[in-house]
Every structure is written in C-alpha cells, then in structure tokens.
Design a protein around this nucleic acid. Structure first.
Length: 159
DNA sequence: GCCAACGTTGGC
DNA sequence: GCCAACGTTGGC
C-alpha cells in the first residue's frame, strides 16, 4: 500500500466532478511525463491512497481523498488525432502512455498550498520541493497520516 | 552524447 | 500575464 498526490486542474476534473461521475471513477488521462507515467505503470496498486490536488487555479491545494482503482492500462487519448493529448508516436501495438483509474473517496476542506508549507511535518513533501512540476508524486506514510488527520480528524484516519 | 532552443507546468 | 524551473527535442 502506497500513497500518492495527484494534481488535476479543476477546470478539467475537479473533486466535485469526480464525485458527480456515475461510477465516481475517472481514468487519469493526459499524463505526458515519463516519471509520472512510470509511477502509475510500475508502482501503483489498487487501493493505494490518493491526495486529490487542485493545481493551475486560484486556490491550489488538497481538495479531497481518492483511491487507485485499477492497475495501469493504455490512455485512449493518445490514439485520437482530434484530441489535445494525441501522441503521433503512439500506436495501439506500442502504446506510450499508461494510466490508472482513480476513484472518489471523500471531499474535504481545501488544504491550501500555503497551509501545506506551514507545517514542519510536511517540509520534505515531494510536491513542495523547489521547482517541482511533477503531476504525480509519492507521499510518505507519515505525511499521509498527518494530512488525513488534518482533514478528517485523528479519529477517522482511513488507512 | 552534448547542449541550446523550445515547450510546458504552475504559482503568483 | 510573468517567469522560474524543468523535460524534451534535435542538430551537430
């Protein structure tokens, strides 16, 4: 069991959008960075914890909790010439981009970026590292427990 | 294999 | 809209 922070632009898919989807599950399409792809392809397991992070918006920060709901499989958008995430070098025989499904668990209050930076317990979080642009970063178990404790209360730590 | 140019991310 | 940081591309 691992923990992850996954960024999404709320104009694209917000935590509310995820909650409103029929199966409350979304294929994590559009990742076009090899490190982020490799995390999904090589390390993610069904059930892993996900901090759902809003980026590229007025109030960036953790907006909810989700869960990895599948192992990795090819991202359909890479094959679609009309799609903004089309990759001309990808073929069905040789897909380049893989993703997992992510399922809604809980919407929380917004734990904003300034607040994340304020907690000494979180000073080593990958997502807070200078110059970090990765849209998917690992979260340490202690960081996960701290954040979930902040968001849900210590009595409700999920796992 | 180097590295300059370019594109993208994402906070502000 | 700006810009720092970083990843990718492609010429050599």
């Amino acid at each position: 069991m691992r923990y992850w922070l996954m960024k999404s632009e709320p104009d694209d898919v917000s935590i509310d959008d995820l909650q409103a989807l029929p199966a409350q599950t979304v294929p994590w399409y559009g990742v076009r960075n090899y490190q982020a792809r490799n995390f999904m392809r090589d390390q993610m397991q069904v059930g892993d914890g996900v901090l759902f992070y809003h980026s590229g918006c007025a109030e960036p920060g953790v907006a909810g909790i989700a869960r990895v709901a599948s192992t990795a499989y090819p991202d359909e958008t890479q094959f679609d010439p009309a799609h903004r995430y089309h990759d001309p070098k990808a073929t069905r025989e040789n897909p380049r981009w893989m993703h997992v499904d992510v399922a809604f668990v809980r919407k929380t209050r917004l734990l904003g970026l300034p607040e994340l930076r304020r907690h000494p317990e979180l000073e080593n979080m990958r997502v807070l590292a200078r110059g970090n642009r990765l849209s998917i970063t690992p979260v340490e178990p202690a960081e996960w427990r701290f954040i979930v404790g902040q968001l849900l209360g210590a009595s409700d730590l999920l796992d």
